[in-house]
Nucleic acid binder design. Sequence first.
RNA 1: GGGCGCGUAGCUCAGUGGGAGAGCGCUCGCUUCACACGCGAGAGGUCGCUGGUUCGAAACCAGCCGCGCCCACCA
Length: 868
Amino acid sequence: MSQDELRKRLEERTRYEPGEVEPGIFARWEAAGVFHPEPEGTAAESFSIAIPPPNVTGALHMGHALNGSLQDLLIRLNRMNGRRSKWILGTDHAGIATQIKVEQQLAEEGTSRQELGRERFTERVWEWRERYGGTILEQYKRLGASCDYEDERFTMDERYAKAVLHVFVELHRKGFIYQDDYMVNWDPGMRSAISDLEVEQRSVEDTLYSIDYPLESGSGSITVATVRPETMLADTAVAVHPDDERYRLLIGEHVILPLVGRRLRVIADEYVDPAFGTGALKITPGHDPNDFEIGRRHGLEEISVIGEDGRMTAAAGDRFEGMTADEARNAVVAALREEGAISGTKPYVHDVPHSHRSGRRIEPLISRQWFCDMTELAKPAIAAVREGRLRFHPEVPHTQVYLDWLENIRPWCVSRQLWWGHRLPVWYCDPCEETFVSMESPGRCGSCDAELRQDEDVLDTWFSSALWPFATLGWPEETPELRAFYPTNVLSTARDIIFLWVARMVMFGIEFTGELPFTDVPVHSTIQAPDGRRMSKSLGTGIDPLDEIEAHGADALRFGLLAMASDQDVRYSPQRVKQGQELANKLWNASRLVLLAAPAGVEPAPSPETVEDRWILSELERASRRISELYDGFALSRATLELYAVFWDEVCDWYLELAKPRLYSDDNAAVSATLLHVLERCLTMLHPVMPFVTEEIWSYLPGERDLLATTPWAAPDDALLDPGAEQAVERLKGAVTALRRYRDDVGAKPSVRLAGRLAAEGYDDTAGQLGRLTRFDLEPAGAENGDAVALIAIPGGAVQLLPSDDIDPAEAERRREARRGALETEIQRAEGKLANERFVERAPAEVVQAEREKLQRFRDELDELKGQ
RNA sequence: GGGCGCGUAGCUCAGUGGGAGAGCGCUCGCUUCACACGCGAGAGGUCGCUGGUUCGAAACCAGCCGCGCCCACCA
C-alpha cells in the first residue's frame, strides 16, 4: 500500500475490524518464514516448546485455545528477543478415540472392522486421517499460533513409529518391560485392557448380598457379603482377619461353595477388616483386584468365569455359561435363594471403576498383558524435581502431587487390544512357546524354523506420547533438529495430564536422552462453562473458540483467555474477551490519533520536551521491567492485565490527553517523535499477547521496518527513569481528579470555566495542564485570599475557588459538610493509631512517620475548611 | 479413607503483613477535533464464620461451615 492509501484507510476506519486483517497478517508471517527456525546451533541458545499434540480426531476447544495462547505468548516473546524459537507441532494418533470414530463410520456403512480385517481397517483410518486430521491445525492458525507449520509430525509417522518401537525393545532389553498374567482393568466397551489412569470412579448403587457358605464339618456356616454374587462361581477361598476371635478356630478349615460344591479353605489375611460386614471375605482372585493380591500371597487357584466378551465362560458351569455377567448375577441369586443360601440383602452405595473412554463399568479380570515396571524410571524423575532442575509453576500444589504419584508408582499396562496404534514388536513361536522382541520380525523361529506370529496388540497411546519432545526432533538419530532444540524449555499443560503425560515424558526423556525434556512446567487453569459446569460438547456447555474468534477476533480471545486464567480453575468470562476486543480497538484508535497528526518524515524517538514526556518514558520503562519479571515467573495473566492497565490508563487516558495541545500545534515534530516511540513500545510489549492488531498497526508506522514478530523488546535503559517527573505527574493526576470531582459535585456544567487560585506546592511544570484538563482559570495564590468561596484540597495544597454563578451553593455546602465528616473520621483514626504506644514503639519508623504526616495533612485541611 | 484447593463489590476474578482492586453490570454528566467497542465523575465490600499470633491480619496459625478437585483395592 502507498502512503496515501494507508492514510486514507486510517482516516476512514474508526473501528478495528479483526476479521478483515487477520488472515492477511497470518499470511505475511508465513510468507516471511518467521515461524520456521533453521536447525542450527545448540539448545542452550534456542527456545522451544513441544505442543501437547492434539488428537487427530480433535477440534479446537477452549483448553487448546488457552494453552495455545500461553505457549504462543512465550514463543513470540523469545522469538522477538532473538532466540531461535521453535514451537514443535504435530498430532497424536489417539488410538482409542480414532478407532472409535472410524468404527462409527463403518457402522453407518453397514460394515465393521472385523468384516474389513486388520489391514483394510488400518488403511481406512489412514484415509480418515488424510481427510480430517489437519482440521485442528488450521484452527490453531486462526488463533495466531506461531507453530512451525513447515515441520509437522504425527505419532504414527514411519520415523516416529520406529522411535516408539526402539524404546519398547530397549526397555524390554533392560528388563523393565515384561509380559504377565495379571489383573487388569478390562473395558468391556473397548474390549481392551486400559491403564489405571484411564479409570475413573463413579458412585453406584448396588445390592449387597449376604451369602452363607456352609462349613465342610457341617457345624454351621460362614456368611460373606458381596455386590457381585456372580463372581462367587470363581471363589477359591474365604478369608478372615488372623486376630478375629470369631473365626480363629476355623482358620484352615474348609467351607463348601454353594451351587458349585468346591471346597474352599478358610485363610487368614491382614487385609480383611473384621469390622466390616461379618468380617469374612469371599476370595475371587480371578475377578477382584484385592482378591487377586491375596490369592497370590496364599497361592490360590485363579479361576476366570467371566470372559473378555463379558460373558460367562465354561468355567462358570453349564447353568451359566454364555450368559452376560448381569444375567448371571440374577441367575446366581435366584439359584442361591432356592438353596436358602442368601441370608440378607441391602442397598449399598459405593464407588465403582468405570472406563474413562467407553463409560462402561470396568470388569477386572486376569489377562496376559505387557507391563512396564516404572520404579527405577521414576527415581531420576523424582530427583529432578527435588533438586529443582524441573519446576512446576505454580510449585504448590503440583510439585507434591507429582512426587506423591511417582513415589507410589505402579506397573504400567502398556498393551491395548486395538488395531490402530503401534503394534507390539513381539513375535511368538507357537510350537516352542518362544517369544522374540525386536524391531524387525526375526523371520522364522531359530529353534524349530516355524513361522512366527506377531502379537496382535498395540501400545498405549501415552507410550508413544512419552517420547514426544525428542522423537519429534528425529531421535534416536542425532539430527541437527535434536541438537538445536532438545532439551526443550517449557511444557505448558493443564493439570489433568501431569501423570498421564508429563511425568512419563520426564521419565523416558531422562532414560533415553540423558536429559530432562524441559525445565519448566506451567500448569494453567481449567476453563469451566460460565455456570461452573465442565465445558463439554455432550452437556451442551461448550463454547467454540472459533465462534469467539469470529465474533471478537483472535486477539480478543487470546487476551480474554490470558486475562481470565490464573492458577485456579475459572469460569469462562465472555466479558474478558470483550475487554480484549475493546483493547484492540483502543490500540487502533490511539494509533490513528498519533499517525494522522504526526508530520511526514518524523521518526519514532524519545524526544522529551515536557515533564509529561519524561513521565511517560519513565513509566513505560518501569512497566517493561515489571512485565518482564512477571513473564519470568510465568505469571502471564498478571502480565496481560498489567499491559492493559499501562496502555489504557497511563498512555491513553493521561499521556495522549496531555500531549494533544502540542500534537495539534504547528511545532509538533518533537512530541510526534515521542508519541511514535511510545506507540512503538506499546505495540512491541503487547505483541506476544495480541499479535494481529499490533502487527497490523506496526505496518503503518513510518520508515522501513521488519515484521513486528521479529522486532526485539527495548533493552532496559536507566537513563529513562525519572522519579521527579513521576512525582510531578502523579500529583497532577490527583489534582485533576479532585477538581473534576468538585465540578461534578457542585453541578458546574462542563462548558463553564471556573476561576481559582492555585495554592499548592509542586505544580511548577503542570499548572497549565491542570487548568486545561479541569477547565479552571488558575491564577497564583497571593496574599489576599479573602474572596475565596471554597477550598478544594489537592495533593500538596489546595485550589481556592473564586466566586461563580455557575455553582449550586446548596450542593457546595453539602459537599463541604461531607468532606468535613470524612476528615474528622480520618483524623480520629490516625490519632487513635498514634496514641497507641506500642504502634509508635514497634512499627517501622517510616510507617509511623507516614501516619503523622497524614494526620497533619488532614488537620490542615480541616482547619482551612472551618475557616471558610 | 488420604491429600489439595477455593470462599474478596451484583457477576467473573486479581491481590499475601501497613489506608480494600480490575473487567463487566449499575448511577450521574458528556455526540470535547483517536475511539460512544468512547470520555469524565461516582455508588457498591463486617475480604465465609470463630478464636489465636502481631503495634497492625483479607493475607500468617488453629478450629468450624460451605463448594470443588485429585489420589485410593474395605467386600
